[in-house]
């Protein structure tokens, strides 16, 4: 792992054990300013334990966590000013309104007076709860509670925002709202550590992704870097009707295209294994038409993080 002095978070050979069980096993990664880093792994992979150590809730049994140049420990105080934690479980006071929850936590972050009032108003706008600010949080929907849960972590404009599975149990509309909020924060330059077991969230939000399983970081990189680990080939499937001669002619001409590795034919379709399917699909369709194929459908399949996870761990992400 290469880190730079500007890195917001440096996790170096982190180890955390519970008795004989090693929940986090020699995990290292870093996050640069403005970068969104995703920890992708199934339930029980060690994501929440890793985050608990990073946020200073648990002591590390080995390795270190450095945030904005300061070492994180459970008893450290000043380094915690750099982080905003959004825990997986809702961490709100149900008998307080959204505004009261935010004001309470803002005071604990050291905000006072006009700064506190204006920051609370800003956060209420950001999470879309300004019009329900006076309602008790226990009266909110699950999605609204999730948004308020995130809002608490934003109050002091942290250098590093840590989101632990923030969309678990949320309806699609609220989920999209949360993802948009995270994208906006990242766009403002905030470093984000985002854990999830939803690959589509990781693909949408994260600049870099760490694949974690059984406490170990199995692979790390950008989406494309991870895809390349699988061999990086796409599939184009052409469905339709054609006679045998035409099909053989089409397959022969397609194999001459740069980027096509293999062409398989069956009675009603052609299946091409290619590099970078989007740039080839138009030419492939033209060749099929010239060979007399009457196309009924064209389907492009690209490898995703699910494929990557399967490739590096030997099991499916949802297992």
């Amino acid at each position: 792992m290469t880190s730079t002095p500007d890195d917001v978070l440096v996790v170096d050979h982190l180890v955390r054990r519970f008795g004989d069980f090693t929940a986090v096993d020699d995990v290292s990664f870093r996050i640069a300013p403005g970068e969104t880093y995703g920890l992708l792994g199934p339930n029980g992979a060690g994501k929440t334990t890793a985050i608990s150590v990073i946020a200073g809730l648990l002591k590390a049994d080995g390795g270190s966590v450095t945030i904005a140049g300061e070492t994180m420990r459970p008893d450290a105080v000043s380094v915690k000013r750099h982080i905003g934690l959004v825990p997986q479980d809702l961490a709100l006071y149900p008998d307080l309104s959204a505004r009261e929850n935010l004001v309470f936590f803002a005071k604990l972050y050291g905000l006072r007076g006009k700064e506190l009032a204006s920051r609370v108003d800003e956060v209420l706008e950001t999470i879309g709860l300004a019009d329900r600010a006076k309602d008790l949080s226990k009266e909110y929907s699950g999605g609204m509670k999730r948004r308020l849960n995130i809002g608490v972590g934003l109050l002091h404009r942290p250098t590093l925002l840590i989101l632990d599975e923030p969309t678990v149990g949320v309806d699609p509309q609220s989920r999209n709202s949360i993802l948009e909020a995270v994208e906006a924060l990242s766009g403002e330059g905030m470093a984000v550590l985002y854990t999830t077991h939803y690959m589509e969230e990781a693909e949408r939000l994260c600049d870099r992704i760490g694949i974690i399983d059984t406490g170990q970081l199995r692979a790390e990189g950008t989406r494309d870097e991870l895809i390349r680990l699988t061999g990086g080939t796409d599939t184009i499937r052409l469905g339709g009707r054609v006679d045998t001669t035409g099909q053989e002619e089409a397959a022969r001409s397609m194999r001459t295209l740069h980027g096509v590795e293999r062409v398989d034919a069956d009675r009603h379709s052609l299946s091409l294994t290619v590099h970078d399917a989007p740039t080839l699909v138009a030419e492939v369709v033209r060749m099929a038409a010239e060979a007399g194929m009457k196309l009924t459908d064209v389907e492009i399949s690209r490898p995703d993080l699910e494929s990557v996870f399967l490739h590096v761990t030997g099991k499916a992400l949802r297992d």
Binding site: K80, A91, L108
Partner: peptide, 11 residues
Amino acid sequence: NGTLARLRSLP
């Protein structure tokens, strides 16, 4: 309720 963990993450 989870608020204790959040409190312990505060400065």
